[in-house]
């Protein structure tokens, strides 16, 4: 059982408490300070008056639409893929899983270049994307591709953890009772791993919302919130960037709180 406070004569625990306190201060300080530097008059200018407001609204809409689209596509691709990877053993599986995790490790500007070389007009699949009428460079679908690329390991790995937690024997019994593979998935596997799937989806969405590096390379236009924050910082200075950043931060914090609630709450207890 965890102890509520270090016992006397345990200097190591006292030291770890000290390190934790320092860690918390270092992390919390910037989170609090951004609110302290917020100027309401600038927020009013950025969001309501002036021509900046329409640009901000457009960037917010693009960001939300692209992030939701990429998350939905990722859920459609990621959930069945994660299930297959969890339930089947095959040669090269470990290598494939490693490859699928690469977006976690790749610097995001390089991820952007990868997307251009893969799907851009002159990329490997360029002729295909062009023939389908999909433009990647400086387009909505470019933003979606960048968001999908960087957030895919989060969806895959969280869903895999969920499927791993379901005993395959439950599926075997379900099938022996007459349910096919799909019905077993929807009636047994999915209800038992639902929390992980939701958590993975929220994580992937949050990751998509925070992406900037690869989007800078792939699609500077149409502008997303992160690009606009960078632009405001360069053109108008810190107060304008903060005025734009804080409401956006609040949105991502809401997602984070939702995630914590989903993980923590036992809404499907057994």
């Amino acid at each position: 059982m965890a102890m509520s406070r270090p016992l006397k004569g345990e200097p190591f625990l006292v030291m770890t408490l000290g390190v934790l306190s320092l860690f918390v201060i270092v992390l919390l300080l910037p989170m609090i300070s951004i609110f302290l530097f917020l100027k309401p008059s600038v927020v009013e200018k950025v969001f309501i008056s002036s021509e900046l407001a329409s640009e901000v609204r457009s960037a917010l809409a693009t960001t939300l639409e692209a992030s939701i689209t990429s998350t939905l596509i990722l859920a459609l691709l990621g959930i069945p893929s994660a299930y297959y990877l969890t339930r089947r053993e095959f040669k090269g599986k470990a290598t494939l899983e490693g490859l699928l995790d690469i977006p976690l490790a790749v610097p995001h500007t390089i991820a952007g270049i990868m997307i251009l070389t893969g799907f851009g007009r002159r990329g490997l699949l360029g002729p295909l994307t062009t023939s389908l009428g999909i433009r990647i460079s400086d387009s909505f679908w470019g933003i979606v591709a960048a968001m999908l690329f960087v957030s895919s390991p989060l969806m895959l790995d969280t869903a895999k953890a969920g499927f791993h937690s379901v005993d395959p024997m439950l599926e075997a019994v379900s099938r022996s009772l007459g349910a096919g593979a799909l019905r077993t998935f929807t009636r047994i596997t999915l209800p038992l791993s639902w929390r992980n799937i939701v958590a993975g989806t929220i994580l992937a969405w949050a990751r998509a919302l925070s992406e900037v590096g690869s989007i800078l390379v792939v699609a500077y236009f149409p502008k997303t919130m992160n690009i606009l924050i960078l632009e405001f910082l360069n053109e108008f200075g810190l107060p304008y960037a903060i005025a734009l950043a804080v409401p956006y931060l609040l949105l991502t914090l809401v997602l984070f709180i939702l995630l914590r609630l989903f993980i923590g709450q036992k809404f499907m207890s057994w």
Binding site: D167, V173, S176
Partner: peptide, 14 residues
């Protein structure tokens, strides 16, 4: 048409 009863019974926990 063959039903299985595994060692740990594998009752659906939900």
């Amino acid at each position: 048409g063959i039903a299985i009863v595994p060692q740990d019974y594998a009752l659906f926990p939900h």
